[in-house]
Design a protein around this nucleic acid. Structure first.
Length: 238
DNA sequence: CGCCAGGCCGTGT
DNA sequence: ACACGGCATGGC
């Protein structure tokens, strides 16, 4: 017997996902499908996911071009390049020491468990892949889920700072909500859909959330060009 | 100039 | 378990 708190939680468990889905629908109608991730290959998605950690995407693009121009945006290229040289190429995206080591560690995982094949990695069950990714240096829950969803085609749900603000500021979850709390809520918003549709919604949700964040013009004041972004992300708490 | 960007990690309570 | 600072660089 768990009392009123339990009943309140169970009630929230059904209504909050519906409210979140309504917010998602508004965003999608306002901004349109985003066709994410902005990359040509799964490996480019993965490298981009590392590089974009706390970093503007424009900076990531510079690094990706540095790698692409030298033929290093391949598994073999990243395997053969020295970590020292890799640092130089990814320098525009910051944290070059950590990120170079992290990317090297991913290639090492790919080689030791999957024969250097991203296809084999994608065939592995996400329940196995996610914890393996999380053991890697420089991979937290958001990077792991971004790789699962956008590079490996799994129905993962990415929780970023913008989604956290969306759900807390609209009172769907308390400000103390953790990553997995928010992820469970977001997964619940689409659990009625068939798997393929669900994966597509997960894809578009994170994509449109980031698009809103990009257009938001800073988090303090209302921006003339993006009133919807302000309303959805900077809504009064509760 | 100061703040921020599509986080993660080590350390101190 | 949780808060907090450091990590590097470039854009605005």
């Amino acid at each position: 017997m768990r009392g009123v708190a339990s009943r309140a939680t169970q009630s929230s468990a059904s209504v909050m996902p519906a409210r979140l889905r309504a917010l998602y629908t508004r965003l999608l109608e306002a901004y349109g499908p985003q066709q994410w991730w902005p990359a040509k290959t799964p490996l480019e998605v993965i490298v981009g996911a590392y590089l974009t950690q706390n970093t503007a995407w424009t900076s990531v693009e510079k690094s990706l071009q540095n790698l692409e121009g030298r033929g290093l945006l391949t598994v073999e290229g990243l395997r053969e390049v020295s970590e020292e040289e890799l640092r130089i190429h990814i320098r525009p995206s910051g944290y070059m020491t950590r990120k170079a080591a992290a990317i090297k560690a991913f290639i090492a995982l790919l080689d030791s468990y999957y024969g250097g094949s991203l296809e084999k990695l994608a065939e592995e069950a996400p329940e196995i892949v996610r914890p393996r990714l999380l053991e890697l240096p420089g991979v937290g829950p958001e990077t792991a889920d971004a790789i699962l969803l956008y590079a490996l085609g799994q129905p993962a749900m990415v929780v970023d700072e913008y989604l956290r603000r969306l759900v807390t500021r609209h009172g769907l979850l308390p400000a103390s909500a953790r990553y997995m709390d928010i992820q469970q809520l977001a997964l619940g918003a689409f659990q009625g859909d068939d798997p393929a549709t669900r994966r597509q919604h997960h894809n578009e949700f994170h994509a449109v959330i980031v698009e809103v964040g990009k257009r938001h013009c800073g988090r303090v004041a209302r921006c003339e060009g993006c009133p919807l972004a302000y309303d959805l992300l900077n809504a009064p708490i509760g």
